[in-house]
Design a protein around this nucleic acid. Structure first.
Lengths: 152, 152
DNA sequence: TCAATTTAATTGAACTCTCAACTACCCGTA
DNA sequence: TACGGGTAGTTGAGAGTTCAATTAAATTGA
């Protein structure tokens, strides 16, 4: 077994800063959404994805693919969102295996109501603290990581 | 209520790339550690923090502060790690409220065994895909975010 | 045609984390 | 001494996620 390629000091510093800022940022975002809209961050993006789809409707598996959520995770989440009246699930006419998840007016309303506060949180926590150059750098860094991580 | 300061297209792109790369990266790291060492990512950092402390021992509350974990989260995690024999908890002689968490030889061994594989995962997923300039940019971006997020 | 495979989705158990409630101990002060 | 406030830590319930197993429908190919 080859000797491990340890991180050099600069990489260490970057990695620890990354892990810590992520942890705190995720917690902050989750807390804000939980407090103001009673939902976890993952549900917010399900609402966003459905709101952007034609007819505000997507097959469960397409929704899972877009958000890169496991089917199981999505099923559990949508089950909970359906109980709240934000989403409905109906059999797909053209494929008996599929279910079509649709955003209800109530779900759309929740999204419209919560989006401004959530965006403000993201802005104040992240983008207000970065220069335009840093925003572009961040995008490029994340895309570079994604290239090795996201097989479509 | 003022009109929301929405994200511009470049910020949107950066934000979606960030969220996606994070999600996939976290999942990849958790899966790797779960598969190879049977522990979640959070436990790995508890082992690291203890291994770096004098006597490989820290008060629970100091450990929580360092890792920025809630006390409850830490208690639950350490309870599980204690059951596995990786950590012990003993009353602090100088303060009857405190508990001292110590890394056992078994815990140290798990860390030593799992670190190379984990670092290799981090390297291949992240640092192998970034230029040295990007590593520095990432560090600075995360520190800027941390400045607004991390009291202390 | 029909068995085998693949795809869509759900289910339930196990696990981690959050949040609120609680116990226990320390310390300052009257 | 004893009260009160603050600190350290645990507990248990509830919620979300993962993983493996399961059901059901579509597709493939001999």
């Amino acid at each position: 077994m080859a000797s491990p390629r340890w991180l050099d000091p600069e990489e260490q510093a970057a990695w620890r800063a990354y892990l810590l800022s992520n942890q705190l940022l995720d917690e902050a975002l989750d807390r804000q959404l939980q407090r103001d809209a009673g939902m976890p961050h993952a549900y917010y993006w399900i609402l966003v994805a459905l709101s952007e789809a034609p007819e505000r409707t997507l097959r469960m598996s397409d929704l899972a693919r877009r958000l890169r959520y496991s089917q199981s995770r999505l099923t559990h989440a949508v089950t909970s969102m359906e109980r709240r009246g934000w989403v409905t699930r109906d059999r797909c006419p053209s494929d008996g295996r599929s279910l079509l998840a649709s955003l209800t007016p109530e779900g759309m309303e929740i999204l419209v109501d919560s989006a401004p506060g959530h965006v403000e949180e993201v802005r104040s926590r992240v983008f207000d603290r970065l220069t335009p150059e840093q925003v572009t750098q961040l995008k490029e860094i994340c895309q570079a990581v994604l290239d090795g991580l996201d097989p479509l």
